[in-house]
Nucleic acid binder design. Structure first.
Lengths: 249, 249
DNA sequence: CGATGGATATCGCAC
DNA sequence: GTGCGATGTCCATCG
């Protein structure tokens, strides 16, 4: 682990020191070159142009540059960055009009982020390695496993025949038959569903109605922990069903 | 601006020094107490439990704590944090088994994030103020303004009567009449649209078909830069129309 | 609070 | 690359 300090001359537990623009540029340039992660804190303006366009007046912000090309601009509030650049972008730095600037660009689509610092309070760089072995539970995949383990949760006698079965309208989560041999389309949602899920299920059912024999009856079942009132009405109108099942704890 | 250094004893441009857990705890605690933004760099494990549940093995990561209660855990890759806690959470710190730990909790829904550091390389804190005066263009709102300024972009003679008009299926983007007095529902999308947008528009048209007089004819027009092939078929099946218009540059 | 739909959504997967 | 759907989506807005 290599650490580059923002200002080694500061006191041990606090400082008002700031970096001059050339020093900031050189430290960030060296870190980006070697593939380190970089954080910059200071007062800056931000401009973005690409899929949309935005400008941001002066303020104190935290800028993060990752070795994969990601750039993030965070303010004191909110979980989402106020501006950003996706992975795969290329970071460049310079000093212009006495200001340290970070530019991050990518192509396809063409996008550019420009951060200009009126003042740089701190630059820190890190040599990062991560194991990337995150395990996550409570997802739609967990709900699918639960349904396949115990198809009676959908209804007694339900028999799954395929997952991700393709239809002209897209892939159906679970495809199967009920106790009387009728085709059943199951759409899974890990949490409470709104009207969009009802429409999605309706598209699958309509597509299979057309694809299968004209005499075939296709049932559509939405499986989720709960459903909004508007979605419940939509399901009823379209002759679709709802079953309450949540992902396993 | 107050800055608290991670380790004031390090050399001016690099160091392998790390903080002992108690020092890290005290500095982060003081910063969170006073409402500063905090960044912590080091090797840690992460556990989350709430809407879902996840665990993350040891790795080098950047942790950001914001004064609004947001917590972010970033690895060397990706634009999204690998773990996080939403605004409104409460951050707490301690030392357990010789490890500096950050816990962030919230209620409704109950969620908790736990970060345990095997090693802390750096702690930095910042007193942040931001102007929050971002301006953004190229949005759906811009496309709506463009359509209202020049309704002929939808079709000659189109006359907008309302925006965000409420229907039983939700609010319609633009509601109006064509040259022959027929009701027109316009759904706007700032970029290329898929099947979901076609379904959304269909819901609005069906809802208005029912709400208005039985003899009324309701047209549905999707306005977007372009449309996928599957969405185009869906629109055709449902008797809906597509007009290509992009948000203003 | 919940409901609804937009977003520079991001992300992963299939084609 | 585009298309499609999930996401601990986040977020503003409205009731």
């Amino acid at each position: 682990m290599t650490l580059a300090d923002g200002d080694g001359s500061e006191a041990s537990d606090g400082s008002d020191a700031s970096l001059d623009p050339e020093t900031a540029r050189d430290r960030v340039a060296a870190a980006v070159e070697v593939g380190d992660m970089v954080t910059v804190f200071g007062r800056c303006t931000v401009e973005y142009e690409g899929r949309a366009a935005s400008t941001l007046g002066p303020g104190d912000r935290l800028v993060v540059l990752k070795p994969d090309g990601t750039a993030l601009v965070h303010t004191d509030e909110g979980q989402k960055p106020v501006n950003w650049q996706p992975p795969g972008s290329t970071h460049a730095v310079d000093v212009s009009d006495g200001q340290f600037r970070v530019r991050s660009r990518r192509t396809a689509p063409d996008e550019q982020l420009l951060v200009a610092f009126e003042r740089v309070d701190r630059v820190a760089t890190f040599d990062v390695t991560d194991r990337r072995d995150r395990s996550l539970t409570g997802t739609e995949a967990d709900l699918r496993r639960r349904i396949l383990d115990d198809p009676d949760l959908v209804e007694p006698g339900f028999e799954p025949l395929a997952t991700e079965r393709e239809t002209p309208a897209g892939a159906v989560d679970v495809y199967g038959e009920d106790a009387r041999g009728r085709t059943v389309v199951v759409e899974l949602k890990r949490k409470r569903v709104g009207p969009d899920a009802a429409g999605q299920l309706a598209r699958y059912v309509e597509a299979l109605d057309r694809d299968l024999h004209a005499d075939a009856e296709v049932r559509g079942v939405l499986v989720a922990p709960s459903v909004t009132e508007r979605a419940r009405r939509l399901l009823a109108e379209k002759g679709l069903e709802f079953v309450s099942v949540a992902p396993p704890a």
